[in-house]
Write a protein that binds this DNA or RNA. Structure first.
Lengths: 360, 360
DNA sequence: TATAATCCTGTAAGCGCTTACCGGTAAGCG
DNA sequence: CGCTTACCGGTAAGCGCTTACAGGATTATA
């Protein structure tokens, strides 16, 4: 008899018990290595399990011992109409998610992902759905208004990855201010650029606001001419960055010596638009990013940017959440350090370039 | 009274029922829009739910009605020792996962992700864990030997994303053969290259084997000189591609006129290694990829490659799985078409380049 | 060999939710 | 006005698993 016939629906622990000739309690004990079953019992159970290909039901398990071993992660994605063009926007979020995943593995947790469209109204419905299936959840930036976060946090262990923490919820973020200050200082002090612009991200993003503020404070304090405002309004996407540059150029504006972009995507778009007009980077205009997305080092010229420890960000978010889930307490605002990554788009020359210019 | 005190542990449907002054059955019915509760009942329940911030437990729900509304996805990641350098390898898998996610949303499913290290022995343990928490699972390439897949598939609805289908499981894949034939034909017929090499991927990958075979067949049939073999053995990574080129060059080998890489990562590494030696692409050696990863168009020169509809691949995998879960049957081998993407690394000139060369 | 101490193992309760089933109330009809 | 028909809403069973509790088997002690 090849396959032991499996009559009604999926296997249960009762099927295994019957086959092994023991009780369901014994099966459970062997499966969870609790107690000290007799060697013969253990063997019979294990044999039955493998012969049957039994996989215990996670839902029943979770219901019974109050732990799902699942962490929910919710984030925004481009609207699903365009399959192709949103590729770029994956990167930042995905790297964070990978960090969450790695940390979760260490505790035997799995990660339940759920994305929400940018214009999706019922984000909170989706979030509730995930919350019900997980022991705790991690919310990427701009998922929910502050009030909603606070409310939800009173029901479910909750970590946000926002620019600014919200009352009641735990939060993990990067030190935007320090990174921006270092970047601006490099451009103005080290390179001597006298006019600088901030090509902003979405206005509703706390990260963007923090960066914009730090940018302006630092640039002004060093006496540089600062370009900001509605004509410099991007939206975190490459298309947005390119559009700003095109708009400025079409209006006949003179560009500043350096353009500080809200993130790497925006810088990518800006550099693309500049190249199309024949404007040299960094020779005519310096461009910088923020995030240090993987592609940043492959751009031409390689992008000077501020690295956020993205994977660590995710890992830390999980660790904080896990601590809350298992012990009931967790840090409410963790700030991770960032690092200025100097490549060539700011005007610094790589060793190779320098050598070529110097002859030999 | 600001917060209605919430005594023991998380809220249950009983708490809501008590507060609304109805039975748990009514609460459940309102929550699931079943039956036709009286308007007043409905309102009282909804008010109680929002006041309490109640979120129904997914595990209990799943246990009760036999549907978790979760699809598991398992894939390999680089070993966790290196946080930074594995960034590149995210892309391919992540785009597919995004496709799964989008399709899953449409059915109200969420996606349970679980990655497994390349050298992780107990991959099957991890997979079982995920299987228990999901209604069905999707396995990326090379997760499990064929026998294991067949076994598991007899217990859980299962879709593989492998180069070749396995008995018992459902499979979704791209048309490697057609893509490779078109690519080779372009290089040999359109460009007239007489010597071509295949810089391979991992030998244990069915995708790689299919591509290698198609490459050789097509190249030979057009009378080109073919370079293959152990000195052309890569591993799907950029580092692997660079290492092959370095090895060949250090050994004093003469390179063929065109190098067909097993995937884009490999091409990226190969181009990097060639650039370091001052060998021009495509002028001295043409290089092509496979996959059309997002960065491919940003390389210098932009990479000629074969586009796999990766997001669609993921979406299709989910759809097939969903059909199996809900109706009990699903296609067992779906093949998606690929598309040759001609950019510049093959020797074709972009319009911009052509214009520049032509004077004007 | 009788009795106590130790181990295992089985029985049954309960996790939070859905839903079949049934009783009660309101509306419809002769 | 009494009886049928509808319609709601409540009670209770059961989803598959873990585990407290207790009983039977086994071994140690006298």
């Amino acid at each position: 008899m090849p396959e032991p016939k499996r009559p009604k629906g999926p296997l249960t622990i009762y099927d295994v018990a019957r086959r092994a000739g023991v009780s369901i309690a014994s099966v459970s004990r062997v499966l969870n290595r609790q107690g000290t079953p007799r060697a013969s019992t253990r063997e019979r159970v294990i044999r039955a399990v493998t012969e049957l290909g039994f996989v215990p039901d996670g839902a029943a398990r979770a219901l019974s011992n109050g732990l799902k071993e699942v962490v929910g992660v919710v984030f925004r994605r481009g609207d699903e109409t365009h399959f192709e063009d949103e590729d770029e926007s994956l990167l930042f979020i995905d790297v964070i998610n990978r960090g969450i995943d790695v940390a979760a593995q260490r505790r035997g947790f799995d990660v339940l992902m759920s994305s929400v469209g940018f214009n999706d109204e019922n984000a909170s419905t989706r979030i509730s759905g995930v919350a019900g299936k997980a022991d705790g959840i991690i919310l990427h930036d701009r998922m929910l208004p502050a009030a909603g976060v606070t409310r939800l946090a009173s029901t479910v262990p909750l970590v946000t990855l926002a620019g600014t923490p919200v009352r009641g919820a735990m939060n993990v973020r990067c030190d935007n201010e320090a990174g921006m200050r270092a970047l601006v200082r490099h451009l103005i002090v080290d390179h001597g650029y006298q006019s600088v612009a901030y090509l902003s991200g979405r206005t509703d993003s706390p990260d963007n606001r923090a960066r914009a503020r730090a940018f302006e404070l630092e640039a002004v304090s060093h006496g540089a001419v600062v370009h900001v405002g509605s004509s410099w309004q991007g939206n975190y996407s490459a298309a947005g960055g390119a559009k700003v540059i095109d708009g400025l150029l079409n209006a006949g504006e003179k560009l500043p010596r350096a353009i500080v972009c809200a993130n790497d995507q925006t810088a990518l778009g800006a550099m693309y638009a500049l190249a199309r007009r024949g404007i040299g980077v960094p020779h005519d205009v310096a461009v910088t990013g923020f995030d240090d997305v993987p592609v940043a080092r492959h751009l031409h010229p390689p992008l000077t940017t501020v690295r956020q420890p993205m994977q660590e960000l995710g890992a830390t978010a999980f660790d904080v959440l896990y601590s809350k889930i298992s012990t009931g307490k967790g840090d409410s605002d963790v700030v991770l350090p960032v690092q200025l990554i100097i490549r060539e788009s700011c005007g610094c020359a790589s060793r190779a370039v320098r050598a070529a210019r110097g002859g030999i």
